[in-house]
Design a protein around this nucleic acid. Structure first.
Length: 258
DNA sequence: ATGACGCATCGAATGCGA
């Protein structure tokens, strides 16, 4: 079974890319972020034709918005971080039944945070605190759990094209990395690092200044798996192919196989 | 320090992303 996370930077603008990519990569579950559309605009028909008959959608006008697309039925859909008031549509969770038991998928579009010291950075810290508490609960209820999405955190220096020049800037701060580490310490594993990976592996590249062509990127899209799930994980990889297409998302899809 | 690109927005200049 394959599960993918992909920040598409507008599902309206990227629908054809999603259809083309899933035609070549018919993953079981596709978790999207930054839909930038309201629920009523979600392209259910096109995605059903592509095999994703089961979609849990938490949209928002203009900004944010997340969805879980699945070839298999979804149940127990939960929107937002339970216990944390959020104006934004950033988190959606759902369960898929597999031969090994329930798989709980939590899909998040983490706060960007703009700049350390800003109001948005404070919001990011509060949001991460809320997520942490929520996940502890979820993990207790659903041992086979994965947390996927656009984390907007480069966990280590090797996850950034310029860890020295960008030290203490957004995605690289000690505070953000401490939050990421707390997720690891609660018993989640960075599936990408469970396997040997190419040097300078990133999942996001700036549209500007030939960021992709120069591989000036960050690894900020992650798939964390619980202790119970860890022994089942067969692979995890970033697919840079759609980043080379015309009018791409600035993020690449990341896929885990269990 | 700013802007560079791209997307969305009652439609042009601005907010936001990372």
């Amino acid at each position: 079974m394959k599960i993918t996370t992909w920040n598409v930077n507008s599902l309206t603008a990227r629908l054809q890319h999603v259809l083309d990519w899933t035609a070549a990569n018919p993953v079981d579950v596709l978790c999207l972020q930054e839909l930038k559309l309201t629920d009523d605009k979600f392209p259910h028909d096109a995605l059903r034709d592509a095999g994703y008959a089961h979609c849990a959608v938490f949209g928002q006008k203009t900004y944010n918005g997340v969805a879980i697309l699945s070839r298999h039925p979804l149940r127990d859909v939960v929107k937002n971080i339970v216990g944390f008031h959020d104006e934004h549509s950033r988190v959606i969770a759902a369960s898929v039944d597999t031969p090994q038991g329930e798989l709980r998928v939590v899909n998040g579009y983490f706060v960007n945070g703009q700049e350390p010291g800003s109001e948005k950075f404070a919001y990011k810290m509060n949001w991460l605190g809320g997520l942490n508490a929520y996940l502890r609960d979820e993990l207790a209820k659903h041992p086979r759990l994965m947390l996927v999405g656009d984390f907007n955190i480069a966990p280590e220096d090797r996850d950034s094209f310029d860890p020295v020049g960008l030290k203490d800037t957004i995605h690289h701060t000690v505070e953000e990395r401490a939050h990421f580490r707390q997720l690891i310490e609660m018993g989640l594993y960075d599936s990408f690092r469970m396997f040997e990976q190419p040097e300078k592996s990133y999942s996001w590249w700036d549209y500007r200044m030939l960021g992709y062509q120069k591989n000036r990127g960050l690894r900020i899209d992650h798939i964390l798996v619980s202790e119970a799930l860890k022994p089942e994980v067969k692979s995890c990889a970033i697919d840079r192919v759609p980043r080379k297409w015309e009018k791409p998302s600035d993020h690449a899809p990341v896929t885990v196989e269990i």
